[in-house]
């Protein structure tokens, strides 16, 4: 399950990076103060809500129940045992 956590962490930070880029553009280049404030509020509220909900849903998932990771691991282990020229006594 670590690989999924790593992949999700990468995805999460990509989303943060895109969000920071958008906020930077709004603050730096927008020419109307009222529009800038409104856009910032809407964007930050919606993005943080979506990111929070997404991370909560990810942590509530039990991927090991859906994906047969244990049986795949057992298969790999048993194949490795068969490939050895000697057999372990136990």
């Amino acid at each position: 399950m670590d690989i999924f956590k790593i992949l999700y962490t990468v995805f999460f930070f990509i989303c943060i990076a895109i969000s920071v880029t958008i906020i930077f553009h709004i603050i730096r280049y927008s020419y109307n103060k009222a529009a800038t404030v409104l856009m910032l509020i809407v964007f930050i509220v919606v993005t943080s809500t979506l990111l929070f909900a997404n991370s909560v849903l990810f942590s509530s998932m039990k991927l090991e129940k859906v994906l047969p990771i244990d049986s795949i691991n057992n298969l790999i282990d048993s194949k490795n045992q068969d490939d050895k020229p000697w057999k372990t006594p136990f």
């Binding site: 849903l57 039990k62 859906v66």
Partner: peptide, 11 residues
């Protein structure tokens, strides 16, 4: 768990 996965994908 299935619903959690479905909602995660939607989110």
């Amino acid at each position: 768990n299935t619903y959690a996965i479905v909602f995660f994908i939607e989110s």
